[in-house]
């Protein structure tokens, strides 16, 4: 009885989804993603990568050590910056980045949704994911540094091009299932009618667009080291820099969760039960694992590709990714018309 109450308490959606999965889970995934990125790149590059911090864990503790360093490092606030914006934006970025989780259902049961209705959840979640880049532009502007301004300018170019593709491609499942309800989309994919298989074009477009718009490593055009030092984050140090950097990883993770839900079948092939454990915690963990795999594949690409030039990236967005997304959308409509899903 007591145990059940505790379970229900943990499964209280704002607590489980936003606090535990959102903050702790996202933090953990960000840590694992950074670690995996370093380890995977190291393997491809014939190195060992992080090792001595904890040889048995494959050097995972180096990420913890890094975090401790970021937290305890002095935060330098240059005199030329716009102080309020400079200090508040990194925090706002993190909050806004986590926000889409409030509209993402990780269980088919209404009881475990963070908000009462999931009718337009996909639209709202996607709309919220487009917010953080705007704050990145603010961030660069507040820094009052040439490299920051160039970096945030690039960020704004890249998001203009790729957010559109990302939104279009991720909306393709909505077109094929005729619903913006994520729960409905996931249920439609049960058990293995995953849209990534039925509609690989849209999936590829979504993957590419997410990679680009979250400036994942090989495509970190806004913060590419060799021209603009660290882009919008040049003036940041210590915990504020960690918030910015972690924000990027968490944003990619949120996108990955959406992709896992709408393309990779969400909690499929598992059929959730009714009680908190089988109805909420297990399905959400399945989604988490699928999202992690998406993030890890993105991390692997770091080792193989170089960096696109800004104009080439934009060119690729309009000429390659956008048609791909439109084709995916068209294919979704055909899927819907032929009742394939």
């Amino acid at each position: 009885m007591v145990l059940e109450t505790i379970l229900y308490l943990i499964a209280y959606p704002p607590l489980w989804q936003v606090l535990i999965l959102g903050f702790v889970g996202a933090l953990l995934v960000a840590m694992v993603a950074i670690w995996f990125e370093r380890k995977a790149a190291a393997r491809v590059q014939r190195r060992i990568g992080p090792y001595w911090a904890s040889p048995r864990l494959g050097g995972f503790m180096i990420i913890v050590a890094d975090m401790i360093r970021y937290v305890t490092q002095q935060v330098i606030i240059p005199t030329t910056v716009d102080k309020i914006a400079f200090l508040l934006t990194p925090v706002a970025v993190l909050v806004v980045t986590i926000l889409p989780l409030a509209f993402i259902p990780l269980s088919p049961h209404e009881l475990y949704w963070p908000v009462a209705s999931m009718e337009y959840s996909l639209l709202i979640a996607l709309a919220l994911t487009t917010l953080p880049p705007l704050l990145t532009v603010v961030l660069g502007w507040a820094s009052s540094n040439k490299f920051s301004v160039i970096g945030s300018l690039r960020e704004s170019y890249v998001i203009t091009a790729y957010e559109l593709v990302a939104v279009l491609a991720i909306l393709a499942p909505a077109a094929s299932t005729l619903s913006f309800n994520i729960v409905y989309i996931v249920e439609a994919q049960q058990p293995v009618k995953w849209l990534a298989i039925l509609n690989p074009l849209a999936f590829l477009a979504a993957f590419l667009a997410v990679l680009m718009s979250t400036s994942a490593f090989p495509f970190e055009i806004p913060e590419s080291e060799h021209e603009v030092v660290a882009g919008p984050y040049t003036e940041y140090s210590g915990i504020l820099y960690a918030l910015n950097m972690g924000g990027g990883y968490i944003r990619r993770f949120i996108y990955a969760i959406i992709i896992a839900l709408v393309f990779l079948g969400g909690w499929a092939p598992y059929t959730p039960g009714l009680d908190p454990f089988t109805g909420f915690i297990i399905p959400s963990l399945i989604v988490l694992v699928k999202a992690s795999i998406v993030v890890l594949v993105m991390s692997f690409l770091r080792a193989v590709y170089g960096r696109y030039r800004l104009d080439q990236a934009l060119d690729a967005a309009w000429r390659l990714a956008l048609p791909l997304a439109l084709l995916g959308l068209g294919w979704s409509i055909i899927l819907a018309y032929m009742n394939l899903i």
Binding site: A40, V44, R46, R47, V304
Partner: peptide, 19 residues
């Protein structure tokens, strides 16, 4: 081709790092 080379070394890194 590029991805295949990457995957090849991801599976078998052939390291020679000195610990």
């Amino acid at each position: 081709q590029a991805l295949a080379v990457g995957v090849k070394y991801f599976i078998d890194p052939q390291r020679s790092t000195l610990l």
